[in-house]
Amino acid sequence: MPLGDVTGRGPGPRTPVIDVHTHAMPMPLLRHLERRGLADLSRAAERVLNLDPAICGLAPGSPIPLAPEQHDMERRLASLTTMGVDHQVVAAPPFLFASESDDDRLTLEVTRLANDALAEFVAGSGGRLSGLATVPVGHPGAADELARCLDELGMAGATMGTFGGGRELDDPVNEELWRALAARRCFTLLHPSRVSSRDRLADYHLVQLLGYPMETALATSRLVFGGVLDRHDLVLCLAHGGGCVPAVSGRLDLGWRRKPVARVTSRTPSDYLRRLLYDTAVFDTGALGRLVKDMTAGHVLLGTDTPFDLVDHDPLRTVRALGVDAGQETAILGGNAARLLGLRVARPDPDGRGEGPSAPPIPLEGHPT
């Protein structure tokens, strides 16, 4: 049965609008971390949070935005309605990944606490939210935590940072995790979680503005050249439209052709990049249009980075400004996400009479690879 479309121009029930890149920091988790001396909520009324550098990876005292929607369910659901989104896929933000900590025990403890808190948070959403399990890359036990979250907590997929435990993503310690993600066909959001040359990015908010897109490109390149994408067929979505990596794909291909040290994969880097997924959080219509053209609409999913301040407040307008056909628009706004995450999302009835029918997801076997 084909998916309906979100435009109202196609047959069948309207496909729900699904945002795959959103974050939450449940208050029970933050209070627990505060009791442990790992968080400071004294400025919460000012919408500011401080976390221990071992957890957030930022300089001591760095302010982290704490919008009410991070932990207040009523405000959260109201924001969905305002944005025209039917369903959000929610992950912990990278500030809770402990990506730069080499303390396995601390990282695994914080990860478990965050996953438990997030599962409880989304359970109170009335079906409007689904959760992604944080998996602690670079640390032994990551695959076990993935299994716990999927099998016991009922999470819809996973999220991970671009570095962990002092190790890159292509380090052998992560092989068990990659095998598990591939075997389960588990949707995974790869989110930048640290930066290189932090001292050069210290000013002008460049850690997030520039460092994060570069970090995604670096991590993805290591997945390509390190053979991870040869060994494992992953359902991997790159945050922020893949950061810088789509723009440098031609340069990576050139190196693969001309530099023997880079000729370590069976296909060009761009071939692997076209197998991956990308969200729409690039904040530029021209750049998003090029991403859709290069990677195809079947590989692009709606993502807003809600509820941080670098957010797309009008995601439907963003996608509709592309001028793609109704089928492609439907795929980006919700069809791809429903299919890849196996979601059956009830949507609010447009006439205000409760929940209307939603189109069923296409079976997972049809995912784009």
Rank of each mutant, 00 (worst) to 15 (best):
V17W: 07
L153D: 06
S266P: 02
D349G: 04
L209R: 14
L236T: 08
G157Q: 03
R35Y: 05
K259L: 14
V207Y: 09
R275Y: 04
L238E: 09
V224K: 08
R353P: 00
L322T: 08
R267H: 14
A142Y: 02
P63F: 07
A262R: 04
F225L: 15
D271Y: 14
L277I: 14
D351E: 15
V17C: 09
L96V: 07
A219Q: 04
G243W: 01
T216A: 11
P361H: 05
R251N: 08
D19W: 03
G12Q: 10
P348S: 07
P348D: 03
S42D: 06
G211P: 09
E100M: 13
Y212K: 01
R167G: 06
A78D: 13
P192K: 09
R35I: 00
G342E: 12
G255A: 15
L291S: 05
L49P: 02
E100V: 12
L153Q: 05
D5H: 10
F225R: 06
G327V: 04
G289W: 10
R194P: 00
P363H: 11
D19E: 08
A147P: 00
E152D: 15
V137H: 03
R267M: 11
A59N: 11
G211E: 07
P16K: 08
R344W: 04
V228I: 12
R36M: 09
L146D: 08
L113K: 03
P363N: 07
S130E: 01
D86V: 05
C237S: 15
A143E: 13
